[in-house]
Structures are given as C-alpha cells and as structure tokens.
Design a protein around this nucleic acid. Structure first.
Lengths: 113, 113
DNA sequence: TGCAGTAGTTTCATAAAATGAACCATGGAG
DNA sequence: CTCCATGGTTCATTTTATGAAACTACTGCA
C-alpha cells in the first residue's frame, strides 16, 4: 500500500501544510468559521503578516475561502472549503497516533514502547 | 470529534514532522530499511548535514532506530520503530486526500471542486 | 474634523533551516 | 603507507520563515 509513488504523490500536500502555523490555523478553522481578528487572538503570538501569508496560500490552494461582508466596520470570515474539510481524516489520524503512542510528554522519559 | 483540545494534543507530533525533509525521509524508510548513503541518493539533493540532523531527531523521538553492523566498510541501517510504523495511517490519509481531491496538479486550473 | 473598529499592508530586522564544500575516522586490500 | 568505501562532521553561507512596528483603507458617528 505504501510504495515509492506515494512519496511523490503527497508532495503537493506537504507544500500546502508547510509552515509553523499552517496546521494550527487549519485546526482553528475546523473548530469553526473565524474572522481575522479572532484567528489572531487564538493563534497568539502569530504576527499579522504571517497570518495573512498563510491565509492567502491556503485560499490560493483552494483549502479555505475568504468571504467579505459589506458593512462597517469591515467584516471578513474564513472557513474551509469542501476540499479543506476533506483534510480532517489526516488530523484525526494524527490525533489517534498521539493517543496511542504515549506522546503526551517527552519520549523515553517514563514509558517504554 | 475535532475540538480545540485536538490542537494542543497534536503539537508534539507537528514538532516531529517538522522540516522540509522529514516526511520524505520517513516515507523512504517505510518503503524499506535503508543505509545512510542510499537515503542520501534517494533524497538527492539533500545535504549530508541535514540528513544527519533529521535522522538524529527522529531517532531521539523514538520514531526510527539506527543499527550499526560491525565489519568493513562501516555499515549502518535505519528503520522505523513500532511507534514509527504507527505513523503510516497518517500518510495513508494524506495519500487518500491527494487522490480524492484532484491534487495531482495545481488547483483551480482545470478542475472545479 | 477626527476618532473608533476591523482588516489588513509595508518595511525592515531577526531567527531558523538548509546548503555546499571540504574534511575526518575506520580498517582491510594492494 | 596509500587507496577505497561508508558514514559521517565542521564551518561558512544562503535561503526561508517569522517577527515587530508602523502605517493604510473604509465609513458611520459625535
């Protein structure tokens, strides 16, 4: 099931998920649609520049959408696209791994695999 | 299933998987046990320093093992631990996503989600 | 006129990661 | 006693990512 072709296949996905803040940001949007300011608070201490950069990349790759509501003050919401939601099983698999491999703390300290 | 606690939970895993070469490296080891030189060729153009760095981190985190065989020339093999093998579902989920979301090429070019 | 609130952008500096070239260690073969 | 192969290390440099601070744009309201 896991052969060499897999390596090249997932390369574009690795590009999407690259960067210190990308996964935490996506997780925030999976929890619920959010505005720029709220993301900034939740992901503190992310800088607005980095947040903008990441949002733009994810939008460009079709993982999230940016919706601007007219009205004042300015109001913008970000949420995952369907393609973005489809990433959930990946995070679920990560969560499962952490739970099942005693990775809450540093390895080799208390437990032995 | 996916709530805020998930975000903090997977943080240590994100640290493990961090770095440009970590996932390709792990995939190579999933395909089969390999020696330093072969990894270097397979992951070309990785630098030996980066390869060593990544291998050491993964070893330290209990994801792979380094086995040195006596004999000349020097012979060292790297392979995933059980904990390492358990990461496979994550890659499987990535592979599935790529297949099911038309992500072989750039998005928005030809296909619409 | 000017302040408030949201959502950024711009510029410059710093930190982290990766690179490239050269070098070191081991030990048997020639 | 030099060469070869493997498996690295060292160090200077470049590239990439992140960060901090200041600034912009919009517009209703006092």
């Amino acid at each position: 099931m896991l052969d060499r072709s897999c390596i090249e296949a997932i390369d574009p996905l690795l590009e999407i998920l690259d960067g210190k803040w990308t996964l935490p940001l996506l997780l925030e949007l999976f929890v619920g649609t959010k505005r720029f300011g709220e993301l900034r608070r939740r992901l503190h201490p992310i800088s607005p520049k980095t947040l903008t950069d990441r949002l733009r990349v994810l939008e460009e790759k079709g993982i999230i959408t940016r919706t601007q509501y007219s009205g004042v003050p300015l109001h913008v919401e970000y949420e995952p696209t369907e393609r973005g939601w489809n990433l959930q099983p990946i995070f679920a698999a990560m969560w499962t791994w952490v739970q099942e491999n005693n990775f809450h703390a540093e390895p080799g300290a208390k437990e032995m695999v």
